[in-house]
Amino acid sequence: MSGGSKRYLMKAVASSVAVTSIGVLPLFLGRFQVVLLTEVIIWGVFALSFNLIYGYTGMLSFGQSMFFGAGAYILTYGIIWEFGLPLSLVMVALGGALLGLIVGAVAVRVRGAKFFLVTLVGAILFHLIALDNRWLTGGDDGLLVPLQFRGITENFYLIYGFGLFVGLVTFAIVKSPVGLVFRMIKGDRERAELLGYWTDGYRILSFAIGGAIAALAGGLYGYTTGFVSADFFHWSYSADAVVWTVLGGSGTIAGPFVGAALLTFIREVLSSTWGVVYPVLVGLLLVGLVLGFPDGVVGLLGRISSRYSDKKGADGG
């Protein structure tokens, strides 16, 4: 067996084991931990949407909160108007994709630092508009999602199955020819352009897919908490997605989930006594990551394991 396919098999086995063990975790956890784990999966899905845009297509966007908030509100109105959950989720995904197309079409017109700025200002604008239109969003006070009572474990498996589905779909996309073009654009946009690819089109497509995923994360978060408010549009959600992805490892499917889990864990360990230093810690962590480990935890693990298997291969040969 060649080294490449062996490593591939190893990765497949490791992912299956990780996914399965998360699936059986609720059997051993208390109610509070199950709720936390549910949230981690939602945050992981949300960060994954950013990862598709940044880690795979190379666009540092601070705009994911627009889709998160929009998804949460579309789901809320879907439930209020009694469309049922499945149809509401379809509407959320379509709405997120449509919004992604529009925002992407505006944002890809500018490059570099200006791109970052345009997405940030877009996020701020959406938040201000949501605050200003209380009749629609309920402003700061928000809206209640009219839900029937569900068990915590039932909700966990809903989110878990859903996270698995989004993870697999994203995996399929990044391994497809389209995903290959995304990564080529990240590596060298001009070369992709010269090879005849309509790079702006692919970048907008990346935004649309990322928008749909982020909207779904927002919708499910609203569905889980039973409450949405204008603050769902706050750009700090975008920033969270950035931090989780960079910590976990950008350009990988597992990275965003690992990052979200690690930081949620750290926040819970710090608890209320030390909770106030959490942002300071995250900030310093980000600086350290940028300087020392730009490919995050998953990238680091990958490097360690490949060094290990290379050594073994060398010994055998």
Partner: peptide, 18 residues
Amino acid sequence: HTLSVLGTFGVTLALQGS
């Protein structure tokens, strides 16, 4: 550009948190 956005954003979080 990308890394300095991330790095200085880290500085922002650290200063604001402090």
